[in-house]
C-alpha cells in the first residue's frame, strides 16, 4: 500500500502519521507539501491532526483552501482513499469532502484523554478488521470536535451506514455521539480520535492497528 501524508504548516501530527504508516505498512509514506499541486501515485492520502494555520479563523478552514487540496479532491473523486484525523477531519468538512462541521467542544475546553469508541460499521475499507460493535480505546486531543450536521444529514449518515465510530461517553458534545464518518462513496473517512497514537504498546495501546490493517488489506 502506497501512502502520502499532507504537510500543512503546523499540522503537527504529520510525523506521528508517518511513523504509524511506516510501522504498519513497512513503507515510508510520501510527505507532500501543502503548496504542491500534485500528489504522487498513492493509494491512501492522510490528512494529519494538529493545528494547521494555528487553527486561526476556523479549524481546518485555511488548509482546506490550500493548493494541494485540489489534488486531494481529485484523488477522492477517482475513488482513492482519504483518511482525515482530528484536524484532518476538520479540513475534510471545511473542504466539503465530508458533510457537517466540527464545532467547539461543548465543555469549551481542549480535551486530551483516551476514549472508548464503538465500531458501528465494518463494511468499509477502514474498519473491516474490527468486529461490528467492538469497543476500542483511542485518544482524543482536540478543542473543536463537536460534530454538527442538520437532522436530515444525520439521518442520512445513519441510514446509509456511514457512521463508523461512535463515542461511548461523549467527550465533546458531538451530535449522536459521532466520532467518525464516511463520505457517500465510502472512500473518505474523517475521525476526531487518533488511531495513529495507538499502534505501539509502549505508548498507550494497539487498538488503532486494525484500522491500518483494514486499509492494507483493501489496498494491496
Amino acid at each position: 500500500m502506497k501512502s502520502a501524508v499532507i504537510v500543512f504548516p503546523a499540522a503537527n501530527c504529520d510525523r506521528d502519521a508517518k511513523v504509524a504508516l511506516e510501522q504498519m505498512t513497512g513503507q515510508a509514506p510520501a510527505m507532500v507539501w501543502h503548496q504542491d499541486s500534485e500528489l504522487p501515485d498513492v493509494d491512501l492520502v492522510v490528512l494529519p491532526g494538529g493545528f494547521s494555520y494555528g487553527d486561526y479563523l476556523r479549524c481546518g478552514a485555511m488548509a482546506s483552501q490550500s493548493r494541494v487540496m485540489q489534488a486531494v479532491k481529485a484523488h477522492a473523486d477517482k475513488g482513492g482513499m482519504v483518511l482525515g484525523i482530528c484536524n484532518g477531519f476538520q479540513v475534510l468538512t471545511e473542504s466539503g469532502l465530508l458533510p457537517g462541521a466540527l464545532m467547539r467542544n461543548a465543555g469549551l475546553k481542549f480535551v486530551c484523554k483516551p476514549v472508548t469508541l464503538s465500531v458501528e460499521e465494518t463494511q468499509n475499507a477502514f474498519a473491516r478488521h474490527y468486529e461490528k460493535g467492538q469497543e476500542i480505546t483511542v485518544p482524543v486531543a482536540h478543542g473543536e470536535g463537536n460534530y454538527y450536521a442538520d437532522e436530515e444529514t444525520l439521518n442520512r449518515l445513519e441510514g446509509e451506514g456511514r457512521v463508523v465510530f461512535r463515542y461511548k461517553g461523549n467527550p465533546n458534545g458531538s451530535a449522536r455521539d459521532i466520532a467518525g464518518i464516511l463520505n457517500d462513496k465510502r472512500n473518505v473517512l474523517g475521525m476526531m480520535p487518533h488511531p495513529e497514537r495507538v499502534v505501539d504498546p509502549v505508548t498507550g495501546g494497539t487498538d488503532g492497528r486494525a484500522l491500518f490493517h483494514s486499509l492494507i488489506e483493501t489496498l494491496s
Partner: peptide, 25 residues
C-alpha cells in the same frame, strides 16, 4: 488540568501526567 494539554502528541509519551515523573521515549 492535564486533560487540557495534549500529552500524547509525538507518540512517545510512555508515562502520562499523574505519576511520579513523566516518561518520554
Amino acid at each position: 488540568i492535564w486533560e487540557q494539554y495534549d500529552n500524547s502528541v509525538m507518540n512517545d509519551t510512555v508515562q502520562h501526567p499523574g505519576g511520579d515523573a513523566a516518561v518520554v521515549r
